[in-house]
Design a protein around this nucleic acid. Sequence first.
DNA 1: TACGACACTTAGGACCCAACCA
DNA 2: TGGTTGGGTCCTAAGTGTCGTA
Length: 716
Amino acid sequence: MSGDHSHNDSQIDSGSRVNDSHKHKDKYKDKEHKHKDHKKDREREKSKYGNSDHKEFSEKKHREKERIKHEDVSTDRHKDKHKEKDHRKEEIKPKKEKENGFASPHRVKTEPDNDHFYHSPKSLKRQRDNDETEFKPKKIKLENDRVDKKGKKRKQDEDIKPKKTQKNKKGEVADGKKKAKKEPEEKWKWWEEERATDGSKWRFLEHKGPVMAAPYEPLPSKVRFFYDGKQMKLAPQAEEVATFFAKMLDHEYTTKDAFRKNFFKDWRKEMTSEEKSKITDLKKCNFNEMGEYFKAQSEARKAMTKDDKLKIKVENERLLQEYGFCIMDNHKERIANFRIEPPGLFRGRGDHPKMGMLKRRIRPEDIIINCSKDSKHPKPPPGTKWKELRHDNKVTWLVSWTESIQGSIKYIMLNPSSRIKGEKDWQKYETARNLKKCVDRLRNQYREDWKSKEMRIRQRAVALYFIDKLALRAGNEKEEGESADTVGCCSLRVEHINLYPEKDGQEFVVEFDFLGKDSIRYYNKVPVEKRVRTFFYTSILNKHLQELMDGLTAKVFRTYNASITLQQQLKELTSPDENLPAKILSYNRANRAVAILCNHQRAPPKTFEKSMQNLQTKIDAKKDQLSDAKRDVKICGYKKAVERLEEQLMKLEVQATDREENKQIALGTSKLNYLDPRISVAWCKKWGIPIEKIYNKTQREKFAWAIDMAEDDYEF
DNA sequence: TACGACACTTAGGACCCAACCA
DNA sequence: TGGTTGGGTCCTAAGTGTCGTA
């Protein structure tokens, strides 16, 4: 271990190790490599489909037995090691404990109830026939499909036997045409139907293929490019790439060395040999006229007449209707991204070594189409061919291609509101709920493992402890130089942590300071249990986790801890006598607690200070009005007016608090990806909050399953 | 068992547009 | 009526985790 950890030596156990350099990773690979046990995987795949149906147990309550608070003692502004984004991080992460008793990162931990609480996973088990070779929809059900009512929830053992087919089950394909028309408002409740158990993702898939990027339109001749002060006409290929740069002139990217270097290198590849011999220095290139031209175009677009704007809208709508939906297993489903990514310059995040490289244009010849054999296949644009036409129902994607920067595969897939995504999401939260029932056992075990004689085990246990306690990401290995230098729990290196036997009056403090996903800084100082002063594990934990609980991986801890924190915070923060805005503030605060835990940040809005000022002005004005009204009430008795003003003032103040607290925190990511929506739905039902106050339309579509199935007593 | 390819989820920022306000 | 604001949507990068193969 050659790493520079001398500053920590006094605290570091002789067996300890933080990944000290990429070079040393390999050393550990031999021992801690990933394991594959296919048989086990298959078994897991099977059992995964059946998790507990919470409905069955909603009567039973979990008792909170233990609450471990990990206060965040960190308030220090820290070193300017990381620039840019770091500053915003700096201000939000080391939050002091707030009035709601919440400190970042907040932990609320509960003990598992007895295992009987969770029933066998039959209830979610659904099957499709495996032997049905010809599954062709005779009737396509739109979103407004009618679903036979069979009570609110499926019963525990109702689906043990495989249903013949969806159509048989509902009897709709054969005879249900009229029914479908009768109740057009009713949405398809896929969550009341059976699931495939054979690993297939669909039985029938038909779509129109992707919308290709618009072809390049050469610049009008009046828009000139100058090299070394002299006008120069570029051939279309080089010109197109030049316009990518010109469109970004106002962006900071174009000042960065790596961006310029990568761009210039790739641009030259697109030049004719004559252009290549002339254009040898990016500094001598003048793209200003191009830049101005695009600015003017965008201004013109903004200034278009209503009519012209409407025409564009109509055309977009037409494209959406034509390409934005597919037919999957009898149902029309929305596609998430049906457009092929247009060419441009790669905008990696953080200090990305490939920023500025040319993202080349994707042609039909690069595109793989996936659909049913017996569907109407999408046609490539005239005179072209798809790279491949595939019929793989073991995957969910409709279209794929390989991008030119990292060589990774891009996909067109379905919208979050689709059955295929919803089922997976539901299952994710069920796995997290399974973790809830054994989390204490796991916690006891990793604490035991800290004492292990084997360094490997100690490292693994400490990594798990931090993944659990701090909701860190796993931190998979990455190829050096291929992307920004970011890390997660298992790829932390010595320079990312400091250990203090005592700091700010606390014993055993670990200070984390590293760039995580998207180069978002993670800064945190945490007091830890004594034994945890030392070691980190450098390789994949998931094998171990899999042994501890079926379906358990490192990221399940994030989901679990996020959801349990929301539930706990909602209980703590909601007071029955609060009015609606105050309750929503409480919800947002609970949501915020999770966002802070998961380190979800955003750049403060550019107009933040100003908009806060405006709001304050309004508040002041309202206060004046109120005191005037209070004076008048004595004379004229307009009590109602005073009450109204008080309420208005309260609303404004709540709004200001909420906005201030939210300055650098992004709530959306946790809401969309980590919080079991049934917790929010139950909370809304319990307190009579309209669900629209918590979820917008898109979110309601995504979480339709949860809105339908969760009652006010749902327990995560 | 090691590794690369692949599939899919999670993520923040850009952009658009409707509501609101002066 | 024009400008501003902020929520919602789109975009696509950047993660996690699994699978197939040698």
